[in-house]
Every structure is written in C-alpha cells, then in structure tokens.
Design a protein around this nucleic acid. Structure first.
Lengths: 243, 243
DNA sequence: CTAGTTATAGTCACTTTGACCAAAACTAAT
DNA sequence: ATTAGTTTTGGTCAAAGTGACTATAACTAG
C-alpha cells in the first residue's frame, strides 16, 4: 500500500540530495485465516488484499501495509495496519522477512519489513470487506502489485514449516476444537491427506493440548471430544521465533 | 556502527518535520568464525566487533554495520560492511531479523536489518585487526553498545538451530575436512559432546558430503579420511531460508 | 433396528537414535 | 622391534518414533 505513496520529507532538497536519500521504509502484513471452501466446504487458507488506488500498479491487489510511524514498534505497526484494513486483531503475529531489492517499486526504492499473521475464524467471519478490501484463496491469487506474489509464496512456505514442527495450528482455530479440526488445518495448509489415527496419536503425545470433558454436539456422527490449547498465546512469542 | 552517526538529509527541515521523519535504516552483521581456543586449543566461535568512536556508547564494542546506500541490495550492504570492517568475504550469509524497537538508540529512532555470516578459518586467520576492530569469543563478550548483546544471542540461537537440521557446518570449514572436524564444529556451536561413532553414522547418511581418496597426514594417530562438501554454496541459498 | 460414518484404540513392520563394544591404524615411547 | 596409547572406523542392541493398516465404539439418518 505504501510503496507508491511518495511521502516528501525533503523541504528544499535538490536532485542530488534526493539521489542520496535513504530508501523509504514500509511495513506490510500477510494475514491468513481459515474459511470454508466455496466448493468442497472444507477449510482452506484465505487472505485479505487491498486494491491500489494510485500508481504504480493502480487497480491491482496488494498486501495491506503502510508507513512506520516514529512512535510505534515494527510489530505494533503490523498490528495496526492489520486492524485498520480488516478490523481484525491477530491471534498470531511474527516477522517474516525484510525485502529490500532495488527494483521492487518502479518509482522509488522501498524496503518493506513484512509480518505474517493468523486470525481465528470467529474473527475472520466478521472481517471488513469492501470495494477495496477483499479476501482471496491463498492458492488462487492473481497477479499482485510489486513483488507481493513472491512475498505470499514465502509466507506460505514459512507457515507450512512452522506448522510441521511448532504449535501454530491452534491459532487458526477457536478456543475449543476437535482433533479432526486440527487435522483439517494441517491438511489445508500442507495440502495432503493425513491418517486420522496416526495424527491423533501424535497430538495426544504433545503436552500443550488438553482434553476437556465436553463433546461437540450436532454433528451427523459420533460426537468428537473437544480439546483446548494450553500453550502461550501467539503474540510476540518467546519461543525465540521472535527475539 | 551507524546508529550514532546522525546523517542529515533534511536541508531546511524544522523541528516538527523532524519529529515526523521516518526512522533511519541501518544494516549490521554478526560474523562467526571458528578459532582455536587460547586455553584448550579446541575450535570455538569468535566474532569481530568494532569500537564506537562517537556517542552514544562511545568506546563500547558494537556489531559492524553501516547505512544502506540507495543502489545496493540489503545483502550486498551486509556483504560490503563485512568486507570493509574485516577484509573478509563470507562463505554463508543470511538475513537474521529486523530490529526496530523504539529505544534501541538513545539519540534517534533506528531500524536495523541484521544479517549473520559464516567465514572459513583460512579467511578468518588473515582478518584485519586493529585498534578499533577486534575478535572476541562469542561466549565471552562484554557489554556491547545498543541492543547488540540481544542480537548476538539471537544470532547464536539461529546458528544452533540451522546447524541442528540444515547443512551449515561446512561453511565454517575449509574445502577438505575430516568427520572429526565437523563433529568439533557441532560440539563448539552446540556446546556439548557428541558420540563420534553415532555422529559419523549420521553424516554418512547425508548425500551432500563426499568421500575423497585422501587422508589427513601429520596427526599423532590414525590418519582420518578427508571429505568434501558437495552441496550448494551458502550465499543467498535457494533452500528457501532466504526468498 | 440397521446401514453408514466418524471417533478412537490398537497392532505390526520399519526406521531412527543413543549407548556401548571392538577392531583397525597410526605415533610415541620403551 | 615391541608395546602402550589414541583416534578412526565399523558394528550391535534396545528404546522410541512413524506409516500402513485393522478393529471397535458411538453416534445419526433412514
């Protein structure tokens, strides 16, 4: 969003001074949420994009982002522009990478520090959507502005990686969930089927998920037991994924 | 290095404009190399620091770094300030993290994009050292300028992590090495003893290291076979650790 | 009451891992 | 020359983990 908005801080700078000017700094965020697929009904990954309303790439979709104001931390900035564009608050938020290639924007040199976030489905359901903010399936984005396709690809790679080890899946679910729901998250993100019995065995061997006495009622079949995640919340985790 | 160097780009900016000015952007690098410990002779991790010659933190040691010039990529900038301060060229170089806390520098808001690098011992041996550039054992740094102690801790954590999976150890060694030398790298970085026989078994099961016909002569005992690393070089790896 | 479907438990072969044993190959000292 | 000492290298064994698979329990829909 910010890459095209040329903010002028140079009151009376001449051309050579502008040449020497430092690259401008932006914060962007890749926001993932689970939504039922329109066709199969199974949960799939979606993310919100905003439409660019000026050049360059006017009319194309881009990651939500904005400038870094002088009185907020990087994470706060990511959190803020997440809230401003979608109205949501993240259940997990982590720095992804700093992108600083020379030709990311045709008009000026921009360094983007990109975060990625997970939001829970209850949140995601009531997300703002408008003419200029829309959700897309993560595997069916068109051509995005700037290098944002590459950034989303990298964020997806990181999400899959974190999921494989790490205990990140729960941040895409509500407070209570069934083991089958967790498995569906894994299947959606990793894009392959998993054996229910084996998957269950692994989850039950991790201490971070706790059996509740309750069961999910209203299904068509045997009611599954509900579980709860007892690990730490995902904002600024001290598992050293963020210092 | 750059955090204190207040570069003025604002020809005739007044105070309120300065308030609204974007944070300045710096690149720093944590450079690891293996050197024999002064006491035990076993290889240990060392890194070069530069002494600050102005406020803030004047006189303290800090990570090598500098501003990002407008015509170089982030990685090029890291590579350049590595070369400028130590005369070395890295055998592995990867982005670590973007640090952007509000109070990292007492004088101005600075966002530092930090890289970490590995250099080979042959290189490290002929590294420049001077009054203002000195190598320190990674586990015996004093108090560093800014938040650089935390940054080094995080870099160490990342190095240990990458070592545990990943094939990163070879970038701290020369072209030819014995399996015992690889084991010593692991022992130095992870700071624990490893069983020689088991370690050998694991290494021999990875396809990236290749037996040569030669042996290391001149030791006191049975001459070990020399091996060679056949994986890709470590600059901007396409193993997706850097996009 | 029965068929269908999901939840849950368990088995079995295979692989990986840590702890340990032993032989091979060299040097240094006797 | 022989021996003691040390490192390299190859091997065994039990424990733990993993993937494929079978079987039973528990519910709903007809």
């Amino acid at each position: 969003m910010v890459e095209g908005g040329v903010t002028v801080y140079y009151s009376s700078a001449n051309v050579s001074e502008r040449q020497a000017a430092p690259p401008s700094l932006a914060i962007s965020t890749v926001i993932f949420a689970l939504r039922p697929s329109a066709t199969s009904g199974r949960p799939t990954l979606w993310l919100p994009l905003v439409r660019r309303i000026r050049e360059p790439f006017k009319g194309l979709w881009a990651l939500p982002g904005g400038p870094l104001s002088h009185d907020e931390s990087l994470q706060d900035a990511a959190s803020r522009n997440l809230r401003e564009t979608t109205g949501l608050s993240p259940s997990y938020l982590e720095q992804l990478y700093a992108f600083g290639g020379l030709h990311r924007s045709p008009t000026q040199r921009v360094v983007s520090i990109v975060y990625w976030a997970l939001v829970q489905p209850t949140e995601a359901a009531l997300a703002d959507e408008s003419e200029n903010v829309r959700w897309f399936r993560a595997d069916r984005l068109g051509d995005l502005a700037f290098d944002h396709n590459a950034i989303v690809d990298y964020a997806l790679w990181r999400l899959r990686n974190k999921l494989a080890y790490g205990s990140i899946a729960y941040h895409l679910l509500g407070e209570y969930f069934t083991l089958a729901q967790v498995r569906e998250v894994y299947e959606a993100v990793l894009d392959r089927q998993l054996d229910p019995a084996n998957f269950r065995r692994q989850l039950k061997s991790t201490p971070e998920i706790e059996e509740t006495g309750e069961y999910l009622q209203g299904g068509k079949h045997r009611p599954p037991r509900l579980y709860r995640y007892t690990g730490r919340p995902g904002l600024d985790p001290d598992n050293r994924s963020t210092p």
